[in-house]
Every structure is written in C-alpha cells, then in structure tokens.
C-alpha cells in the first residue's frame, strides 16, 4: 500500500475515530487530541499494518490505547467527565423532541468505562463482538456481557418516559428519578 493510499484511508477513518473518541472521552478537545495522536502513531507504524486487514479496528485499537494512557494519568478528570460533557459537545438539548443528544452524552459519561467502550464499539460503531473483543483485549463473552449491562444501564439513565409506545411506567420513572439524584 502506497503512503498516499494509506493517508487517504486515514482521512476516511477520521469521522468514525472522532465519534468513538468523543463519546468515549466526553470532551471534544480531548477527543481531537486523541485522534491526532492516533493518526500520528498510525502513520509512524504504517509498515506494521497489513493491507487488506481491518484498518478501522487497527486504528480504534491505537485510539483506545491512547485513551487509557491518558485515562491512567488523569483518572479523576475522566471520571468527572459527566456534566462538563454536554457543554463541550456543542449540541442542542432538544432536537425536534425525538433525540436528546446532550442527554445521551451525559448518560454515556455515567457508564463504567469498560461498559461504555464495549457498547460504543458494538452498538454504535457496528463492530462485531469479535472485533470489539480483539480491540479491548478480552474474551467475546466479556464483551457481550459488558454490552448488555451497558445497554440496561443506559436505558435506566435515559428514562423510559421517552419511549411513548410503551406507556411510561410511573413506578419505574420515579424510581429512576430517585436513583439519579
């Protein structure tokens, strides 16, 4: 693979790298730093990438490693990401009422980071369980259980009231509201 082809593939991967980095870290500035580090590392190690294999998974692995390097250094700040998140993503709280992006970002920030990354890889990035397992360096079963737990927790955090079809169960709603305090 020529350098130009590789560069062009990097360019194409940027939007999904940013989406992963922003939803993982909760902050756009930090996420863009992560993406930049990822691109530089990928470029420096481009000879170790096997053409024809999964570039996106390879890049996500690099990005994830960068995130955890940062995470270990600044653990508290990352855990405190909730709250600061909505303001930095630059999204409107209500978009035609059907989708509350700030709520989603806040809820993601409340998930344990191992569950958050598993959910983002599988449910948002359309990675297979196997790809996600490889990226995270854990067993496929571990990823499946993390995704399930993350999805359940996210459902709680977002509140059932936003799903009109099911008719909000007020017991659940108030229990969730109480838990969120």
């Amino acid at each position: 693979m020529s350098d130009n082809d590789f560069k062009s593939d990097l360019m194409k991967a940027i939007p999904s790298l940013r989406a992963f980095a922003i939803s993982l870290s909760g902050k756009v500035d930090r996420a863009d730093d992560l993406v930049q580090e990822t691109l530089l590392k990928a470029w420096a190690h481009r000879d170790s990438f096997t053409p024809g294999t999964n570039l996106r998974a390879w890049l996500f692995t690099i990005l994830r490693n960068e995130f955890y390097t940062f995470f270990r250094k600044r653990k508290r700040e990352v855990e405190d990401a909730d709250g600061a998140i909505a303001a930095t993503v630059g999204i409107h709280p209500e978009q035609e009422g059907h989708l509350d992006l700030a709520d989603m970002q806040r809820a993601l920030g409340k998930l344990p980071v191992d569950q958050r990354e598993a959910l983002l890889l599988v449910s948002a990035s359309d990675m297979s369980y196997e790809e996600a397992a490889e990226i995270c360096g854990v067993a496929v079963g571990t990823i499946k259980s993390r995704v399930n737990r993350a999805r359940n927790k996210l459902t709680e955090l977002l509140g059932l009231s936003q799903v009109p079809e099911i008719g909000p169960d007020n017991n659940v709603k108030s229990a969730l509201a109480a838990e969120a305090r």
Binding site: R18, A19, S23, S123, A124, R151, L158, E165
Partner: peptide, 22 residues
C-alpha cells in the same frame, strides 16, 4: 422496544458526531 429505542438513540447520537465536518 426500549432496548431498540435506546440502541437507535445511541446510533443517532453517534452518527451525528460522525457526520460533522472533519
């Protein structure tokens, strides 16, 4: 239904970020 709705919202949120200009 809730699980589907939550997954859909997550995907929409994620795709919205991915659709931003580089």
């Amino acid at each position: 239904l809730v699980s589907k709705a939550v997954s859909g919202k997550l995907k929409a949120y994620y795709d919205d970020i991915a659709a931003q200009d580089i």
